[in-house]
Design a protein around this nucleic acid. Structure first.
Lengths: 242, 242
DNA sequence: CGATAGTTTGACACAGCTCAATAGGCGTGG
DNA sequence: CCACGCCTATTGAGCTGTGTCAAACTATCG
């Protein structure tokens, strides 16, 4: 009975019905029968904060959609210095087509829920459904734009501007349904101070000092180390440097 | 006569015959008749060092292949601070599909020769030839990998490591035919010290000091400010940090 | 041969790092 | 319920790598 209902409700698998990835993510490119095929091979699962999703130089044999939570993409130098090179939010696609191994490390920054499916299935669908590569190209280009924006932050901004830029990035991405006109914003930081430092190319101490500076200047309020209140996002924006 | 020969030599347009982009670039995805159609709408031209190819927030109506020379992609903050966010070498593709405006500035770092064609023609071909999007996706993912590698350099390396990393990048890209096993390498720097500084997130002076340091340590030799000799690339590599 | 643009070098200042101590939040166990 | 320990974050003091400002040097070109 479950299966019948599943297949018959407009041909959308139950698994996918409320999934963001079907609208804004890569699955939106699929025909109903393809979606069903992919859904059959998929499984939803939760990865706990701190657990590794993909190791550097590890074989990749699944792709995933991020359904909730935040994934951090990191790179590490041989002596241990680390840099976060990207954050992924729902409904981003996670995986690197056309390569067997990852050159990157993906780790759950918060508890993350994922919808994973075999690389081989997806790769096959990419060949029969050009719209899928189209979506992937769009996402790749957006990630490239984001990466290049962040390069400006890393290369040319001061510590104060970096921290403000980070808060702006989170404010923009954590709740996509928020009204962009609204001036007051509230969110939980998905990263520890150490992670923020690794994202900004700073030390923990500098991040902390810049946050307290924003606090004493009444640009933000912080509760429980993680929960941030911004009264007027334009004041924060002004400190981000752009 | 010219035209006949053109069309009949395996159907490869004369314009494209010796072009790298036909093998390693995006044009490799095209069928002969598509290549002919695109070649008809294309024109080769040379852009002088220092000239702008695409302005930030400017309409893009052509795509190009880089045939020779180096293009720098830059972003600028409102107060003038600048960051180079990418370098493009032959036979890279230049352009941003799916957006009317560029969020980036492209400028000829050296004299550059380009093969340009109307965006509309290419966009149409992308729809009838999925292989084209496939190639673009591959290039976009490589550029994304490169951008993320560079984020590590910007965020976590010292000035000395940054300069060594830059030299390694040029050595790797300037002459793709060079034997990767060969230890001695020679190349012309395609960028001024100011450009190098903008690429590394440093000042001109710091770049200069680090170069003299590499010079006095006999890792490199420099002639005429631009020509670099590396006796043993492994010694340079060791200074790049990875 | 002088003008111009790019580069190097020097002296000093300061943003951000290092090291160290303190404070706060939270779960565990008595 | 408090005490304890652990982990994360904050704050302080001093140091250092890189930036700033200024001057000298070098190549190129009319």
């Amino acid at each position: 009975m479950e299966l019948r209902k599943d297949i018959h409700s407009d041909g959308i698998p139950l698994l996918c019905e409320s999934c963001q990835a079907r609208h804004r993510g890569v699955c939106g490119a699929l025909e109903p029968e393809q979606l069903i095929a992919l859904a059959k091979a998929s499984h939803k699962h939760v990865v706990k904060e701190g657990e590794e999703l993909i190791g550097d130089a590890e074989r990749i044999d699944v792709y995933s959609n991020v359904l909730s939570g935040v994934v951090k993409l990191t790179k590490t130098l041989s002596d241990g210095r680390q840099q976060i090179v990207g954050l992924q939010f729902a409904p981003d696609f996670l995986g690197r087509p056309f390569r067997k191994e990852s050159s990157i490390n993906a780790e759950a920054a918060t508890d993350v829920s994922l919808c994973s499916f075999p690389k081989a299935t997806m790769d096959r669908m990419m060949q029969e459904q050009p719209g899928l590569e189209h979506r992937l190209l769009q996402q790749a280009l957006i990630e490239l734009d984001d990466a290049r924006d962040w390069m400006v932050t890393l290369g040319r901004k001061t510590a104060a501007e970096k921290v403000a830029s980070f808060l702006m990035l989170i404010a923009r991405n954590i709740d996509p349904s928020r009204d962009p006109e609204r001036r007051a914003v509230t969110f939980d930081l998905p990263l520890t101070r150490a992670d923020i430092a690794d994202f900004l190319g700073l030390t923990i101490e500098t991040v902390s000092r810049q946050l307290t500076r924003l606090r004493t200047d009444n640009v933000i309020r912080i509760e429980n180390n993680r929960h941030v209140f911004v009264d007027d996002i334009r004041r924060l924006e002004a400190r981000a440097g752009n």
